[in-house]
Amino acid sequence: MNETSGFLARPGGERLAWRRVAGAGSTVVWLGGFRSDMAGTKAQALADWALAQGRAYVRFDYFGHGESSGDFAHGTITHWREDALAVLGELVQGPAVLVGSSMGGWIACLAAMAQPARVKAMVLVAPAADFTEKLMRPGIPPEGVAELDANGVWFRPSPYGEPYPITRALLEDGARWSILDGEIPIEVPVRILQGGEDPDVPWRHALELAQLIKSQDLVFALIKDGDHRLSRPQDIARLIAAVEEVV
């Protein structure tokens, strides 16, 4: 069994890069994080698992990420949500198990709310629901606010590499997709893995999401010494175990 790859045509000539393993059971769909791509440690570990177990699996890069076309600075939550729904609609046969990491956890929730009949279960890793409004905007320093007001973009320093653009359009669009303002109508099984030492998504933020999701079959696992990426061997083992539990 092999992993195939290709590009999904999108409006405006855009192309979404994807990789797929044909296999049995519900299709596991990887939804990556903000500025991450489908070649990351967790996404690759799930591909290896799918190949070894003969399980159906799809991973892809959002607009402006990884191998997909587009300028990252022009991306919004609306656009990336539409990317996820396009993948569900065109690359997935039958029910899906959404595995969302960081921003991908938010996108997974939005996709499940839009297509409840398609989603069988969810596994969320450090889910960053509403991160533009709840986590990103409050951390913008005064000079960043001034840059956004003047130019519509601020380049945020990153511990992971070069500064990256935060746009006024991203922040304003993200606010329109807030889900932490009431009960979240997701009733499928949900597993959440969250690091207690996560500097980007505080564990209480992820717990708030867990408490608002309507599903009664929800397990929130706090990995006390875990960071945001949760990519250590023991974290990967927990991720795969969670996927196997619900798939």
Rank of each mutant, 00 (worst) to 15 (best):
R81H: 14
E90W: 08
G70H: 07
P11K: 11
F34C: 12
E90T: 07
V99G: 02
S68Q: 14
V92N: 12
R10N: 01
A17K: 04
E90M: 10
K120E: 14
S36Q: 14
S26E: 07
G12H: 01
E82Y: 10
A111N: 12
A126F: 08
G104N: 03
P116I: 05
C109Y: 02
F72S: 11
I77E: 05
G94W: 01
M103I: 09
F34V: 06
Q53P: 05
D71C: 06
L98K: 04
Y57Q: 05
G70A: 06
A112T: 09
M122Y: 04
A47G: 13
G40A: 14
A24E: 15
D37W: 12
H79S: 13
L46P: 10
W80E: 10
G104P: 02
G13C: 02
G33H: 13
F7P: 08
S26A: 15
L124Y: 00
S68R: 13
S102W: 10
A43Q: 04
A114I: 03
A117E: 13
L16N: 14
W30S: 04
A112K: 02
G66F: 03
G6Y: 03
L124D: 00
G32K: 05
E82R: 15
V97P: 00
A108C: 07
E82G: 07
A114S: 10
E67T: 04
L98A: 04
M103N: 10
R20H: 13
L51Y: 03
M122K: 06
Q44K: 07
R10K: 06
H65T: 11
D71V: 09
G75F: 00
G104V: 00
I77D: 05
Y62S: 13
Y62Q: 14
T78G: 13
S101Q: 11
L110Q: 05
S69T: 15
K120F: 06
P116T: 06
A17W: 10
L51S: 04
H79Q: 11
V97G: 00
L46W: 01
F72W: 12
H79P: 08
D71E: 09
E82D: 15
S26G: 06
V125A: 05
A114F: 03
V28M: 14
G12N: 01
F63R: 11
L110F: 08
S102H: 08
T76D: 10
V58S: 08
T76F: 08
G23A: 06
Q44W: 06
G66P: 11
R55Q: 11
P11D: 13
R118T: 09
T78S: 15
R35N: 07
V58D: 06
W49E: 15
V21Q: 08
G32C: 13
R10Q: 07
V92I: 13
S68I: 09
A22H: 09
G100P: 02
G66M: 05
G23R: 03
L31E: 09
V119N: 12
C109W: 01
G104D: 02
A73S: 08
G64H: 06
A56W: 04
V29S: 01
T41R: 13
A84L: 10
V58I: 07
R15G: 02
L98C: 07
W49K: 11
I77M: 07
A24V: 07
R81I: 07
G75N: 00
T76L: 11
F7E: 14
E14F: 12
V92Y: 10
L16H: 15
G23D: 06
A39D: 11
V125K: 01
Q93P: 00
G25N: 05
V99Y: 01
Y62M: 13
V29Y: 03
W18N: 07
K120P: 04
V87R: 12
A52R: 15
F72E: 10
